[in-house]
Amino acid sequence: MIFLNYFISGISLGSIYAIIALGYTMVYGIAKMLNFAHGDVIMVGGYVCFYAVSRYGLNPFLGVAVAMLLCTILGIIVERLAYKPLRQAPSLAVLITAIGMSYFLQNTALLLWSSNPKVFPSIIGRGAFKLFDGALSVSHVTVLTIATCLVIMVVLSLFIGKTRLGKAMRACSEDKGAAQLMGINVNATISMTFAIGSGLAAIAGALLCSAYPTLMPTTGALPGIKAFTAAVFGGIGSVPGAFLGGLMLGVIEIFAKAYISSQLSDAVVFAVLIVVLLVKPAGLLGRMTQEKV
């Protein structure tokens, strides 16, 4: 039963990673860049939601909607200001810019909201379902997290698979030049990808802070990197891959915490990343792309 409890909290944590990983995987699939600042958009989403609910007394779900809106705008602004001018630049330059952007968001948050941790009010209270005469307790947040993740996965898969915009996204990730020749606005598509990813990050922020209720300017950094690990694990560029990778990484992390050592759990997660990259660089569900000379 304890095992099952750990497993469920692993799935719950993994669902959050999966939602974050979607942002990485879509942006990497299309723009071929690692958006280091993605984790900090989560943090911004968390703060916006926090203030919307605790200061302006909004309904928590309305608060999440406000956070989504602001994070989407933030994502578009970041992309326009920092990444768009570097479309043609070497990947090293883009990566350094993204790290700079991550630092910028973190330190702006530090100045705006100070480094004192805020206690995040859970968006649906702290209740729990008791199963098997109380031997197994599953909190409402856990259920909501897993359900949200499933809904997002289904909607996003349908969006990418069935709509014209989704088709444009797939075309851009396949071949930007050819997509442009077919009349697709590549820049707009990339901006849209950032917008979707950032909106999802806001949801992830609210869920993450509901499950682990301390909010600091650095809250997003480590989950961001772990979610990237999840995206790589599942195969970067693949939406089902992000889902699978996220869930597996969440379970691995919780088990490592429970059965190995809570201090070494981060090290275990990163070791997973390294092993995956060495054994199966394309990830579980990714496609291996041959390098053209």
Binding site: A89, I96, T97, I99, G100, Y103, F104, Q106
Partner: peptide, 10 residues
């Protein structure tokens, strides 16, 4: 520092 990184790269 963050601004330095971004501006230098741009």
């Amino acid at each position: 520092y963050a601004v330095v990184l971004i501006v230098m790269m741009l």
